[in-house]
C-alpha cells in the first residue's frame, strides 16, 4: 500500500507542477462560469423586461462551475493519456509495476483539486454576493460535499482513459461526454424541464448529484435523506475499474499501441 501511495504522490506532484504552468487555463476556468452565468442572467433580464431573481444567477453560477469541473475531469484522463501517448510516457508507466487505477486517480485528483480550487474562488464570490457571510459555513461544507461527490467520476475517467488509448483521439470521447453531462445533469437548468429520456440519463450520471448536493448544502437543506442515492454512485468506480481492466487485457496489452 505504501508503494501505491508513493506512486500516486509521484504522479500527482508532477501533474500539479505541470498544471501550475498552465496559468491561462486556470484563469479561463475561473472566469468562464462567472461570465456565462452573468450572460444568461442578462438574457433573462432582457426577455422578462426586469431583473430576474438573483437566486437564479447563483443557481447557474454553481451549475456552470460544476460544468467546468466536469469538463476538466472528464477530459483530464483523456488528455493525460493523449499526452502520455505522444511523449511515450504511458509506455513507461505500463512497463513499470503500477496499477492503472493509480494513474487515472492521480490525473483525476489533479483536475479535481483544480476544480475544487475554482469552486472555492467562484463559489465564494457567488455566496458573498447573494447571501453575504451568513452562508459561508454552509459553503465550506458544500466544498467538502463536492470533493466527495467527485470520487465516483473516477470510474468514468477510467473508461475514458481506456477508450482513449484504444481510439487515440481524446476529443472523440471527452467532447461527447461533456456535451451529454452539460445538457442532462441539471447544471444550468432543472432536469425536470427535459424530456423523460434525458432526465433518466441525467439521473444516472454522478454530476447531477454533485450539483444538487452542493446547492442544497449552501442553502442549508441537505440532510441524510437527500444523500440516499450517493452510495450507489460508487458503482461507477467499481464498474469503471472492471471495464478498464477488461479493455486493458483484451485490447491495450494485446495491440500494444502505446505511442501515438
Amino acid at each position: 500500500m505504501k508503494k501505491e501511495f508513493n506512486q500516486l504522490l509521484a504522479i500527482l506532484e508532477v501533474e500539479i507542477k505541470n498544471l501550475l504552468r498552465e496559468r491561462g487555463t486556470v484563469g479561463f476556468a475561473i472566469f468562464f462560469p462567472i461570465l456565462i452565468s452573468l450572460s444568461t442572467y442578462g438574457v433573462g433580464a432582457g426577455i422578462l423586461g426586469k431583473a430576474p431573481n438573483i437566486d437564479l444567477w447563483f443557481y447557474q453560477l454553481i451549475g456552470f462551475t460544476i460544468l467546468m469541473i466536469a469538463i476538466f475531469m472528464s477530459s483530464s484522463s483523456a488528455w493525460y493519456v493523449r499526452q502520455g501517448l505522444l511523449s511515450r510516457r504511458l509506455e513507461y508507466l505500463f512497463a513499470a509495476s503500477i496499477n492503472p487505477l493509480i494513474i487515472v486517480a492521480a490525473s483525476s485528483i489533479t483536475s479535481g483539486l483544480m476544480g475544487i480550487g475554482i469552486f472555492l474562488v467562484v463559489g465564494l464570490i457567488g455566496v458573498l454576493v447573494v447571501y453575504g457571510i451568513s452562508n459561508l459555513l454552509n459553503f465550506f461544507l458544500a466544498t467538502i460535499i463536492l470533493a466527495v461527490s467527485l470520487i465516483p467520476i473516477l470510474g468514468i475517467n477510467l473508461i475514458v482513459a481506456a477508450t482513449t488509448i484504444i481510439g487515440k483521439d481524446p476529443e472523440a470521447i471527452s467532447q461527447p461526454l461533456s456535451a451529454i453531462v452539460s445538457t442532462t445533469s441539471g447544471l444550468a437548468y432543472p432536469i425536470t424541464i427535459l424530456p423523460f429520456i434525458l432526465q433518466i440519463i441525467g439521473e444516472v450520471m454522478p454530476y447531477y448529484y454533485a450539483a444538487e448536493y452542493v446547492r442544497a448544502m449552501i442553502n442549508g437543506y441537505l440532510n441524510l435523506v437527500n444523500l440516499e442515492s450517493f452510495p450507489f454512485l460508487f458503482i461507477y468506480l467499481i464498474g469503471g475499474y472492471f471495464i478498464y481492466r477488461y479493455f486493458e487485457y483484451n485490447f491495450i496489452r494485446k495491440e500494444g499501441n502505446y505511442g501515438a
Binding site: K2, K3, N6, Q7, L9, A10, I11, E13, V14, K17, N18, R21, S87, R88, R89, E91, Y92, L93, A95, A96, S97, I98, G259
Partner: peptide, 25 residues
C-alpha cells in the same frame, strides 16, 4: 524504448528520475 522520449519536458532531469523512482515504489 525510445531514448529521447518518456520525459516531462518541463521538469529537470533529476525531477524526472525521482518521478520514475517513485513509480517503482
Amino acid at each position: 524504448l525510445a531514448p529521447d522520449k518518456g520525459f516531462y519536458e518541463r521538469l529537470s532531469g533529476i525531477e524526472n528520475l525521482v518521478y520514475y523512482g517513485r513509480l517503482y515504489g
